[in-house]
Simulated assay, not measured.
Amino acid sequence: MSTHRAIVRTGDTVTVATVPTPVPGPGEMVIAPRYAGLCGTDIQMLRGLRDDPAPIIGHEGIARVVATGDGVPASLRPGTLVAVNPTHPGDPGFLLGHNVAGLLQERTLLPATAVAGGMVVVLPESTDVTLGPLLEPLAVVRYALSQLRAAHPETLLIIGDGTVGHLAARAAARWLGERTRVVLVHHTEAGRRFSVGGPYPPGSSLVAGELAAALPGPVAVLLATPRDATVAALEAALAVTGPGTLIDVVGGLPPGARTALLPGVDLTAVRAANCGGRPDPALVTTTSGGVRLLGHRGVSNEHLRAAAGELARDPERYRDLITHRTDLDGAARIMTALRTGRNRIIDGHRLVKLSIEIDIRKDLR
């Protein structure tokens, strides 16, 4: 039996193990991840804040097709460079790296529902694969900013200084316009230092608690926070904005999440109303106070292609957000540190995006 290496979660441990390599059945395909990333939801899974069952996580990255089963389109022949859209809008049974095995391994099986559902996106051969870990989160930003653009914002307030927050701050000029002022609210002072010291600092860099004065409007808000911080971030945004504000709840939420500031609004339902980039325009909830809310899970293939085009157009605008680079063994060590610790300082500096280079052996380019 053929085997390959994978980062496996077992109980409280994270180790590199040898696992059987799958053979694709009808409609299925096997891909070889080339560069994969670790995102905020992955870290929540490592810390036990989510109960997603996949022992091999990872949904951000770029891969090559290795093998296909009968019925797979010829456009996805072995050797093709691809990205996988991790959120199937019509099949909740496929959520890459959450309920099916993800990309942090040398070979990943994609089930027929993902292939037939068009979740495999062909990329140009000229694609810079080293930026692969930024592709899916930048697609999330593309979807968010395309919706927030409807508010014609003078100010874009971003709460959350993870990968999505930083990508949104840098892409805002491109997708909202040069005149939109960006206010980025960080979780820690270390996060603010990273932003201020980087090549593309936002217009204003704040730390949580400093957001006190009303913002010049119209205002659009992007909440890029982990699920245990999203309600508090929403309340902070409501305190400095007014009627007509458009707020996108990108960050996760616990089931049935609510706030007394928006009576009668089920925030989880607001976020669940838009999935996989559908519908577009997104469904928006208008509260009794005139605040407009939307949220979304996942993106469309068009958002992924737009993100790939943006990375190709201006790669150096985003490259430094990949702060840590390693292989499978190094990634297991970092994931263990993230699981047991509660900050994102790894090897002496702040982790924004971890890039994992995966050995695809010599049977592919």
Score class of each variant (00 low, 15 high):
residue 7 I to Q: 00
residue 20 P to H: 07
residue 24 P to G: 06
residue 34 R to N: 13
residue 37 G to R: 04
residue 38 L to Q: 01
residue 39 C to Q: 02
residue 53 P to L: 11
residue 66 V to K: 04
residue 70 D to N: 14
residue 76 L to V: 05
residue 78 P to W: 02
residue 85 N to M: 04
residue 86 P to I: 02
residue 90 G to L: 10
residue 92 P to T: 02
residue 98 H to N: 12
residue 106 E to S: 04
residue 109 L to N: 03
residue 115 V to N: 01
residue 115 V to Y: 00
residue 119 M to G: 04
residue 119 M to E: 05
residue 126 S to Q: 13
residue 132 G to N: 05
residue 133 P to Q: 10
residue 142 R to A: 09
residue 145 L to H: 00
residue 147 Q to F: 01
residue 148 L to H: 00
residue 156 L to G: 05
residue 159 I to N: 09
residue 159 I to A: 09
residue 162 G to F: 02
residue 162 G to Y: 00
residue 165 G to M: 08
residue 166 H to F: 11
residue 168 A to P: 03
residue 169 A to E: 05
residue 169 A to V: 08
residue 173 A to P: 08
residue 182 V to C: 03
residue 188 T to A: 12
residue 189 E to L: 13
residue 199 P to Q: 14
residue 202 P to F: 07
residue 204 S to P: 12
residue 210 E to Y: 09
residue 213 A to L: 15
residue 217 G to H: 05
residue 224 A to P: 00
residue 225 T to H: 11
residue 227 R to I: 13
residue 230 T to K: 07
residue 231 V to F: 07
residue 235 E to M: 11
residue 237 A to Q: 04
residue 237 A to S: 03
residue 239 A to F: 11
residue 242 G to I: 07
residue 244 G to R: 11
residue 247 I to S: 03
residue 252 G to V: 02
residue 255 P to N: 12
residue 256 G to T: 13
residue 267 L to Q: 07
residue 269 A to L: 14
residue 270 V to S: 08
residue 276 G to Y: 02
residue 277 G to R: 01
residue 281 P to G: 04
residue 283 L to R: 15
residue 283 L to Q: 13
residue 285 T to L: 14
residue 286 T to D: 14
residue 291 V to W: 08
residue 291 V to L: 13
residue 301 N to P: 02
residue 304 L to H: 12
residue 315 P to M: 08
residue 316 E to F: 10
residue 319 R to N: 08
residue 322 I to N: 09
residue 323 T to G: 06
residue 327 D to V: 14
residue 346 I to E: 08
residue 348 G to W: 06
residue 350 R to C: 10
residue 351 L to D: 01
residue 353 K to F: 08
residue 360 I to T: 15
